[in-house]
Design a protein around this nucleic acid. Structure first.
Lengths: 205, 205
DNA sequence: TAGGATATCACCCAATTGGATGAAATTTGT
DNA sequence: ACAAATTTCATCCAATTGGGTGATATCCTA
């Protein structure tokens, strides 16, 4: 397995370098240090970090929170906050960004290591929200669906009637019915409710 | 809001009491201290903790992990590990239990507080998988479902046909059809596929 | 205990779905 | 370029669902 790629966001160069040295010594690869928001955004776009360490200071600097929101919205990987304070006020501000942890300065190698490992492990562990795809569906079937059949199945999963599907896809109702029959055959079911349930079970398995 | 109920599992009475004092001073209510596995299991059964602090020591004592597994299997609430060491070996042993955090001794009030708050917040945040209940469904409806209507809806959600539902509930097919009609009226839909989709959206909202 | 809501059941009809068979057109892979 | 697979469409029939109306029994509550 390749090294875990870490992004550090920290405006104090000394601390940032210190963290980098600690992490590079063990199993991690620091893919960049951002001293401000802009650099962080750039590194997010160009690199693919596995985890981020975000500095947050009291006072004006709430960049860490903004970066956290960006990660949650666009990238979805875990991150930890680094901070010197751990007051209720700060905590309430950052809770809604769902950090995987909180490391209070001063910290040592062990704090960093455990924080990162727990964060990564938890993030993997909870990532069982699969997205619907033909690969995922077919992985669970002895007879694979074709592309069109999968398309029709998705529409069924979203509650459309055969007529609605036929109109949306500009084909005849008979065509959709044929696809539906093949789907039932391959899924080994007899109603569209069963089809929806079966897909739900595959998604949450 | 009532106080957050904390379970402490710690074989050192002095440390346990110390933690208890710290927590009781702030927003928490320590619902019990377990000095061993058996006491922990008993408290799990009789109380309903919101979060647990689990001691793990190196050496023979892996009770914390066993308790963690019990929590994951039967109770599903977040917990944190308390430990004196944070070595790779320990970490690998506990990672699969998905703790919401890791607090390394010696710790202070702030460590405890942030650990607990982040853990609770994350646990809530990821709990997007609501459990289906009539309360949850009705909360999303202008016209509330009755109990029987809800029962029928659940069976529909699980892919049963009207006939299957009628047989399972020992009532006539006509009765089920009546309930289904009322359900459609109240959900403002026209097909059972739509019903299933609507429930799915409520569950994942 | 009277009235309202709920649960039960029946009958009717239209629309949709489910299921079988066959077949032409198109795409894909080798 | 050929064969195989896929996509398209049709027709026929049975079963189920969706929708409307009405009626009786039961339960709950004011």
């Amino acid at each position: 397995m390749s090294k875990i790629k870490v992004l550090i966001v920290e405006d104090e160069p000394l601390i940032a370098e210190d963290i980098k040295d600690i992490l590079n010594e063990v199993n991690y690869q620091v893919i960049g240090i951002a001293f401000n928001k802009e650099e962080a955004f750039h590194l997010l776009k160009t690199q693919q970090p596995d985890i981020a360490l975000l500095d947050i200071n009291l006072g004006g600097n709430t960049d860490g929170i903004i970066i956290a929101e960006e990660i949650n919205n666009k990238y979805q990987f875990p991150f930890l906050y680094l901070t010197s304070y751990s007051s209720k006020i700060v905590l309430d501000k950052v809770k809604h960004t769902f950090p995987m942890g909180y490391i209070v300065k001063p910290f040592d190698e062990a704090d960093l290591y455990t924080g990162i490992e727990i964060a990564l492990s938890n993030f993997q562990g909870r990532k069982k929200t699969n997205t619907l795809s033909i690969e995922l569906v077919n992985k669970n079937l002895p007879n694979k669906l074709t592309n069109k059949e999968y398309d029709v199945l998705v529409e069924m999963y979203n509650g459309l009637t055969n007529k609605q599907i036929s109109e949306k896809h500009f084909v005849s109702l008979n065509t959709i019915k044929t696809h539906v029959q093949k789907i039932y055959e391959k899924l080994d079911i007899h109603t569209r409710a069963e089809a929806i349930v079966k897909i739900r079970k595959i998604l949450t398995s």
